[in-house]
Write a protein that binds this DNA or RNA. Sequence first.
DNA 1: ACGTGCTCCTGTGTGC
DNA 2: TGCACACAGGAGCACG
Length: 260
Amino acid sequence: MPELPDVETFRRFVDETSLHRKLVDVRVFNRRVLNGLSPQRLKRALQGQSFRSTARHGKHLFVEVDGSRWLALHFGMTGYLDFGRQRRTGPHDRVVFVFAEEYSLAFVCARLFGRITLADSVEGFVADKRLGPDAMAVSGEEFASRIRRSKATIKSILMDQSQLSGIGNLYSDEILFQSRIHPTFPGHRLTTERAACLYRNTRKVLRMAIGRKADPWAMPQSCLLPHREREGRCPSCRAALTRQTVAGRTAYWCPRCQRK
DNA sequence: ACGTGCTCCTGTGTGC
DNA sequence: TGCACACAGGAGCACG
């Protein structure tokens, strides 16, 4: 579930809670999330240091450690961060960063799809993973040219992290709804005008979601997201929403407002 | 170059 | 009540 707005919310959370605190311990409860990196190496890289700054690219959160090393966090589907003083360990805590004075930041991830790795730089990591430009940082020209050079369905392009970084299933549905574009419409058949409209709505939706701390239910009633469920109706025309698999995901759209 | 389906996982909700 | 099972969906992969 964590898409760009969620990860941006996590990033701000780290900024508010966890910077400039001395790291006294790193507790690894499940090695799987470290992706082959040994708990010892992680601990050695962090112990005695502190988190200096944060960055984000798409769904990836980066935390700078003294000595210009970066933690790269990916939240999979169910990952999130929790911070507290004398915080009790929960059943899904996978890695806990322990600071001085008994404060700690936990990487909580029920389904173990999340990952924490070390990187030398954000740029290096992004290049390594072949991530496309961040969906909030990309220019309108770059956005349109990427969309219009692909013959894939527009929903799959929006969700393709090598094309655009940060958009997942939920927000792609919302962006397409706002743009009145059918999810299976081929990217290369979008006119420049419609591509520009899609770009504006991408920014609008992501900005709105960040402002609401990525709570889909907190989005305005005129949005698709609060109605995105079985039996849901289009907030604009009241038509029953279509629910169908597109690009391997459950997509919701309005069959009247979003025609092919 | 595209879509499809499988896998990794486990909490949650539904139906019998 | 308890069990079986579908479902959720990020990402990487094999396959056609």
